[in-house]
Design a protein around this nucleic acid. Structure first.
Length: 631
DNA sequence: TAAATCGGATCTTAAATGCT
DNA sequence: GCATTTAAGATCCGATTTAC
């Protein structure tokens, strides 16, 4: 066959590797050494040994580079260790001696609380020694500066907002000791904690939607991210900072779980055991060791308390077994370190333990279909819990009255009443939801009783929300001023309050209206409740700074309830024979609006029994619109 | 006219993607 | 697990240019 004639001339097989001269000339190379062409031209026939050569060379170069960096990093860590370890712990455990100097942290009992639980020790850097690239080390050190040093805010702003936090927020996140957690102390100990406190202060003063607050919040996220990436074991200050974030964040559930995990990792539960096991010192002389133990126990209780709140009101059982009891909690009341903040914390903790036990009993012992024997078990669980709650209220009223007689005391008393009513509301509605109630028309008597008890508690709750500041002069500790007198004392503190407390407040007000309608309360009493709901709204309007979603929910819902009632009364007067279809359209659109602005956690996260939107198959619209069937 | 040059077609290989 | 596609890089065909 003539190759030149063939339409598909078979190509000669290529050389696997052409020599450098053939390659440069773009001509066929036969691959021999020397190749025919080089031999003929009498030139040097040079081949690259393998096409991957340059790649291999690059890999070898990079490996050498990595080894050099590793050596450099290890040397740097050695130097840092030598520089940092002799440093003494500062501030939080530093006691100011009469001479004005500082005393050092004493030796702690071996094996109880790790040194890492205390600030001031070089805890983070050695943890980085294993296998983290140098870039991460750089990032970790990048967040050691606070928002002021970063240039986000001024020192004046930081100082003002720091003070604001300790004027109200410290009652809601009771994990601080005002004596030791001073501005200077926190500033020197931990930038994350410092920024967290300042951020919440800024939130209270400037509003949640202010640009400064947004900027500070993103700074907190930066701190948190870096800690998650770089630290094996964070410090107690980090636990405090994450707890603050949890309280004021949409992702509170997740954050408090994180704080809890870190707290356990640091051995905080042990500090409570140790503290309680120690013989009580009644004198004012408390060792630094005891002060620290008490401080750590307070932080642990604060974190657990928030976790309990989130779990109980989020419809989940708590993720931890607290291993404590009322007796252990009350033992702490006698401790010399006990403060007014602890009055709130410990009473709430005890209450939440009672609530938790009740929920566990209710959920575990009662299935979806309620049998007669289950019904009596459910009723006795509820009755027992009601007695526990009454005892709790009575005993803590005595404790608070004896400990604190000033404005802070009266606010604490008001607070435990509100907590008590809240516990009653949720207890009865939880039991009701477990007993499988769908429709009020087919309710059994005991279920109807539960709804009635819940409504009465909700009505008392509403009245407590509106209780005014007493005329006694404000104490330095209390945030109340002459300006606040005559205003609802509890709502005045809402400037500092957390999202979930806002949610609870909005829920309780809506609930009382809903239950009053379900129970067919007489129209005048519903109108009175509506008036009170309006007062709550008016008070909150003066307090709320910036956009607060729960305020919007409350406002819209009350307006809808009012307009529905007005319409109902107009019908009664014979002015209308039926509902105007255009009005119905308006209501529908308002309902859509509601779904648009309702925070997702109000709809999906919180499991407030009774008014969760999931349990309203007829919709928001029908609740306040179809009053004719109610009255 | 032989040798050199070089645009670009073709081939090889590895990774990505799709299919059963 | 196998087939196909895709992409990158290497080879070298063949038209053109250059040197003698």
């Amino acid at each position: 066959m003539d190759a030149s004639v063939s339409p598909e001339r078979p190509r000669k097989r290529r050389a696997i590797n052409a020599c450098t001269t053939c390659r440069a000339s773009k001509v066929r190379c036969d691959g021999s050494r020397p190749c025919q062409r080089c031999a003929r031209n009498n030139t040097d026939c040079v081949y690259y040994d393998g096409a991957k050569d340059p790649t291999l060379m690059r890999v070898e170069k990079l490996e050498a580079e990595v080894n050099a960096l590793k050596t450099g990093l290890e040397e740097a860590i050695d130097v840092s260790r030598r520089e940092l370890l002799p440093r003494t712990p500062i501030s939080s455990h530093t006691n100011v001696s009469p001479e004005g100097g500082s005393t050092l942290q004493p030796n702690l009992p071996v094996g109880t609380i790790t040194n890492q639980a205390f600030s001031g020790y070089a805890v983070s850097l050695p943890n980085l020694a294993h296998g983290l690239p140098s870039t991460l080390v750089m990032n970790a050190t990048g967040t050691t500066c606070n928002a002021v040093e970063k240039g986000l805010i001024s020192w004046e702003q930081a100082s003002f907002w720091y003070q604001s936090f300790f004027s109200g927020s410290h009652y809601l996140v009771p994990i601080f000791s005002e004596r030791t957690d001073t501005f200077e102390s926190v500033l020197s100990r931990n930038a994350f904690l410092f920024d967290a406190i300042v951020t919440i202060g800024c939130r209270a003063e400037e509003g949640v939607s202010s640009s400064l607050h947004h900027r500070l919040q993103s700074r907190l996220r930066e701190h948190l991210t870096n800690i998650l990436i770089t630290m094996d074991t964070p410090s107690v200050e980090v636990v405090q900072a994450i707890t603050i974030m949890a309280g004021y964040s949409e992702n509170g559930f997740v954050l408090i779980a994180l704080a809890l995990r870190f707290a356990i990792q640091l051995g905080l539960p042990n500090s409570v055991d140790q503290l309680i096991a120690k013989p009580l010192q009644r004198s004012g002389d408390v060792s630094v060791e005891d002060q620290d133990l008490y401080r750590l126990a307070r932080i642990w209780h604060g974190v657990c308390n928030l976790e309990l709140f989130f779990s109980l009101d989020g419809g989940k059982l708590p993720g931890i077994n607290l291993r404590t009891s009322s007796r252990k909690i009350r033992a702490l009341i006698q401790h010399p370190e006990f403060t007014s903040v602890d009055l709130r914390l410990l009473s709430q903790l005890e209450l939440n333990i009672i609530r938790n036990n009740a929920y566990v009993n209710i959920v575990n012992h009662h299935g979806a279909s309620i049998l007669p024997e289950n019904e009596s078990l459910l009723r006795s669980t509820v009755q027992d819990t009601v007695i526990e709650l009454s005892l709790w209220l009575e005993e803590w009223t005595i404790i608070i009255s004896s400990k604190s007689k000033d404005q802070a005391g009266s606010l604490a008393l008001l607070n435990i009443h509100i907590q008590y009513e809240w516990a009653l509301i949720t207890l009865h509605l939880k039991a009701l939801s477990v007993s499988g109630i769908e429709n009020i028309a087919i309710m059994k008597d005991f279920q109807r009783d539960m709804v009635r008890t819940a409504k009465e508690a909700a009505a008392r709750h509403l009245h407590h929300l509106l209780e005014e500041t007493s005329s006694s002069p404000p104490s330095p500790e209390s945030s109340n001023t002459r300006r606040d007198q005559g205003r609802p004392a509890y709502l005045t503190t809402f400037k500092w309050t957390m999202d979930y407390v806002w949610a609870k407040c909005a829920f309780s007000v809506l609930l009382v209206l809903k239950l009053a309608l379900l129970l067919r309360d007489p129209l005048p009493s519903v109108m009175l409740l509506l008036q009170d709901a309006h007062k709550v709204l008016e008070s909150l309007k003066r307090i709320a700074i910036g956009h607060i979603a729960y305020f919007q929910i409350l406002q819209t819902s009350i307006e809808k309830c009012e307009s529905a009632l007005r319409e109902y009364m107009a019908q009664q007067e014979g002015n209308s024979t039926g509902l105007d279809p255009s009005r119905v359209g308006e209501e529908r659109s308002a309902e859509d609006d509601f779904h648009g602005y309702a925070p997702s956690e109000f709809v999906f996260e919180w499991d407030f029994p009774g008014l969760n939107l999931k349990s309203m198959p007829l919709g928001w619209h029908d609740l306040f619109l179809d009053l004719d069937s109610v009255f």
